[in-house]
């Protein structure tokens, strides 16, 4: 089956070709099939957000290939954009607009017809329990409600593929469950979902596959139901670091 979301051998360094350039991606490759939830976990600075920025077209990599629904994300045609959503960093939310206005605006910008934007906004507001704040300005929302609004704006048009960066970092336990259920529902309906997180136990609950990211690339794959996920993750990180050391400086096990 073709991948809905794809990164193939992507390299990127901030600072271009300058001597002090900082490599952020060093051969990042991943693929997400329709109906699949893939989670990326990694330490701070591992390259997760940079990878997601490439995948959403916000950053043109030094080399490598990125594809969203078969297209270059930096030049996504309208037909593909209609089926794609993302939250990486700041969401498609205007702090001066109300929750309902933001959802309607997001729906229209994602290609939902003006006549259908209200219904799409109401449906996702109900699904993510945003109705009590429907008329509140986004800037007045708590951090958790604002994060749920951001996720809602990214999926208001029921995309076939979407990308969420740390989607539950500010949520209370109930909010975490709401977003998790939403992700699983959309995947069951055939959507390809890529999420990044620091929280191993959370990704274990939501993902079909977990990719350990370290040093700007995927260093291994984990299955969410395996025992001692945390230890396995650190084993992969340690192995990657050890492999990266010059041969003479490695300690024997």
């Amino acid at each position: 089956m073709d991948s809905a979301l794809l990164l193939d051998d992507v390299h990127h360094a901030f600072g271009g070709h300058r001597p002090d350039a900082r490599p952020a991606l060093s051969g990042m490759s991943l693929a997400v099939a329709p109906g699949e939830v893939v989670a990326m976990i990694g330490l701070n600075g591992a390259g997760k957000t940079t990878a997601l920025r490439v995948l959403t077209g916000r950053l043109r990599p030094t080399s490598g290939t990125a594809r969203v629904l078969g297209h270059d994300p930096a030049r996504l045609p309208a037909g593909a954009a209609l089926r794609f959503g993302h939250v990486v960093g700041a969401a498609l939310v205007d702090p001066a607009l109300t929750v309902t206005e933001n959802l309607r605006v997001a729906a229209e910008l994602h290609g939902v017809a003006h006549a259908g934007a209200g219904a799409a906004a109401s449906a996702v507001a109900e699904r993510l329990d945003l109705v009590p704040w429907a008329h509140a300005r986004a800037r007045a929302l708590s951090l958790g409600n604002a994060q749920r609004l951001g996720v809602a704006c990214a999926v208001v048009h029921s995309p076939a593929a979407f990308v969420l960066d740390e989607p539950t970092s500010a949520l209370d336990p109930r909010g975490v469950v709401l977003v998790r259920e939403l992700v699983r529902e959309r995947a069951a309906a055939g959507a390809a979902v890529l999420v990044s997180s620091h929280h191993l136990d959370e990704v274990a609950r939501v993902a079909d596959r977990v990719l350990a990211v370290h040093g700007g690339r995927v260093v291994g794959s984990l299955t969410p139901d395996e025992a001692e996920l945390e230890r396995r993750f650190f084993d992969l990180v340690l192995a990657a670091d050890t492999a990266a050391l010059p041969a003479g400086s490695r300690r024997s096990a």
């Binding site: 994300p73 309208a78 794609f84 990486v88 700041a90 939310v93 205007d94």
Partner: peptide, 18 residues
């Protein structure tokens, strides 16, 4: 400045039109 412009990528409404 605050990064919201990143959300304007991948929309059916192109950034130039916005």
């Amino acid at each position: 400045a605050d990064g919201r412009a990143g959300a304007y990528f991948g929309l059916t409404t192109p950034r130039g039109t916005l």
